[in-house]
Design a protein around this nucleic acid. Sequence first.
DNA 1: TCTGGGGTCCTAGGACCC
DNA 2: TCTGGGGTCCTAGGACCC
Length: 429
Amino acid sequence: MFALVDVNSMYVSCERSFNPRLKGVPVVALGNNDHCVIARSDEAKKLGIKMGAARFQIQDLIDQHNVQLCSSNFALYGDMSARFQSLMYNFVEDVEPYSIDEVFLKVDGSYDTLYPSYQGLGESIRNTVMQWLRLPVCIGFAPTKTLAKVANRIAKKNPELEGICVLTNQAEVDTALEQFEIEDLWGVGYRYAKWLKNNGITNARQLRNAEIEWIRKKMTVQGVRLVYELRGYPARLLEDNPLPKRTISVAPSFGKLIPDLTNITDALTTHLARCCEKLRKQNSIARHLTIYLHTNRNRKTPGRPDLASKQYSASRTVKLPFHSNNLIDFLPYGISALQSIYQFGYPYQKVGIILNDIVPEDNRQAGVFADAPTPEQLELGHVIDGLNRRFGRDAVYVASQRKDREWEMVQGHLSQRYTTNWNELLVAY
DNA sequence: TCTGGGGTCCTAGGACCC
DNA sequence: TCTGGGGTCCTAGGACCC
C-alpha cells in the first residue's frame, strides 16, 4: 500500500501558520512580481478566484471581499516543506518527497501493531502535522501511487471524510474510478484528456479498461504504466533515494520591462550565480548552458507598430570546454551568448538560464585544451556559499554586478522568513 | 498597464562507431 | 551487378507534473 500526504493550499497554509489573522478569510499567494495567483485558500476559491489568474483580472474581487495578498516567500515555504517531509519518518521508513507539498509513503504491514488501520495511521499523521507545524493535510491510501493520488483527491473534495480516504477493496476502487474525471488523473494533461474524450473515455474507470496497445501508441509507455496502476498493479515504485537534478534553471521575470543590454547583463550575472549555487548545493558540475531572452507575450501594445510593440524571443546554447560549477567559468560564455541574441530596441521581460549535462562534482575531468581547476578554485565557490549563508544572500558577489538592480522583481506583500532568519524571528515575537 | 517558475520523462531522427 | 547488422550518443520536440 502507498499513501500520498499533501498539504492543503500549501503556500497559504504556511502564511497562516505564522499569521493567525489570515485564518477564516480569503487569502491568495501571488507569483513573481505579485502578478499571478499561485495558491488560494478555500475562501478565495469560493469567491471564484482561479489558479493562475492575473491580479488585475480579480482586482474587483480583492477590493470587495478584502482578499489578503501574500507575495511568494519561498524561503519560508521551502523550510516548512523540509520540516513536513522529515516529520514523515516518524511514521514510516520509506518516504519519497514528491513536490514542495506532497510526499509518498510506503505503508506496509509492518506498521500494523503501531497503527491497526490505515485510517488510524492517517489520523495520527494528520494530527501530528497540525500540532507540530500548524499545517492541514489530506491523505489517500491505495495499492498504487496513482490510486493513492485518486484517493487523496477524493479526501480533499469531500469534507465529510475529514482529510482521509482509504481505497482497499475492488468495489471501492470501482466506484471511485467511475466518478473520477479523466482530466484529473495524474499523468493526463490537457491534450491527452481531449484525445481520450474524443475517443469516448471520460472517466478513470473507462481508461482502466482500455486496450493497452492502443493507449501505448498515443500516450507512450507512460500511458501504459498509468493503465496498469489503475488496475492495481504498481508500475511506479517509491523513489526514496532522489537523484541529483539533471536540469537546473533560473528565469525570474524582471520587475519591469528592460530594454538595455547593461541591465540585462547584470540580471544574467545574478541568475547565473544562482545557478552555480544550485549546482554546488547538490555537488554537481555542468557543461551545457542555454541563455534565452524574450519580450512580454501577453502585452498588446496599441498604437504605433514600431519595434517597441513587437515580440521577440531567441535562445542560444553553448558547450563549455569543461564541466564547472564556478560563476567565473560560466560568465564569459553566458555574456557572449546573450550578446549574440540581444537586439536593440525591444522591451524585454526576462532573461533565462538553463544548465544541462550535469554530472557529480567528483566526476570532473580536465578538458583536453583547458587546465583542470586548482583545489583552491574548486573550494572558492563553496566558501562563497558559506559566507552568503552566514551573512545573508549576496554578501559576496562578483565585482561586475551592479548594486542598483533596476531589473529586480517587485514583492509588495512579503511576510517574514520566520523559520530561517533568526533576526526576523525575534522581531516577529 | 498588468498574465509564474522549475522540473521530469519519452521518442524520433541524425550522426557516428565497428 | 551485388552493399549487413548491431550499436551509442546527442538533440529537439512533445507530453506531463506541482
